[in-house]
Write a protein that binds this DNA or RNA. Sequence first.
DNA 1: TAAAAGAGCAACAGAATGGTTGCGTATTCG
DNA 2: CGAATACGCAACCATTCTGTTGCTCTTTTA
Lengths: 112, 112
Amino acid sequence: MSSARLHAPATGPAEVFAALGDPTRLSLLANLSDGEARSITKLSADTHLTRQAVTKHLHVLQQAGLVSRARIGRESRFAYEPAPVGTAKAYLDMVSAQWDDALSRLRRHVER
Amino acid sequence: MSSARLHAPATGPAEVFAALGDPTRLSLLANLSDGEARSITKLSADTHLTRQAVTKHLHVLQQAGLVSRARIGRESRFAYEPAPVGTAKAYLDMVSAQWDDALSRLRRHVER
DNA sequence: TAAAAGAGCAACAGAATGGTTGCGTATTCG
DNA sequence: CGAATACGCAACCATTCTGTTGCTCTTTTA
């Protein structure tokens, strides 16, 4: 019944990869992957960027479903969301599987 | 030493993810992941894009080390290169590993 | 209650992306 | 040889991305 995205936007692999394709976002995610939720200013402290810039990066990550946001009092805390990383790994596994298949087929053919 | 990039530019994870972060490039790679090297016009045939556009995408993939180029007569064939996909998977595994660690630590703490 | 802290929103500028068209060059084929 | 094929290069355009600054709003705290 088309529950129309509850939390995870069910985004395609390309969007996830694109979200991961930036050093700043990658380090933000690495920062959050310990399970601790952090506020924006907290996350900005580890950066040479403005709070606004970090905010935008966090929005990109959130759009890809890689992090979730929760407003706590006057601060909004971001937390790592594991699902999309699984999706991405699954996609990469598909690609390497096809490659390995081709390789073994080739081997078999060469070795008769 | 300092062999100054022979074939694989030894690119960081972010650049690989960025290269994967586009539907067109993703399908190009999926197309090539069967191990067959293909020419640009051949690859362009499966697309609604111009040959030039596909060429640019292939350059991005090559820059990230995901494909290699070889000039054969008047055509240049592109072939899938498996290494960067391994790098990307390794990075994602690192992230999920840290997450799993945090989860199990939390569990242990909660269950005393 | 007044100040400080945390954040959202909007406008803006510069750089990078994604795509096109046009043209020149090398290679293959009739 | 001449035509067709495959490609490279450069210019160009529109759009998106990245980052900044300025202002306002809410929540905490002294």
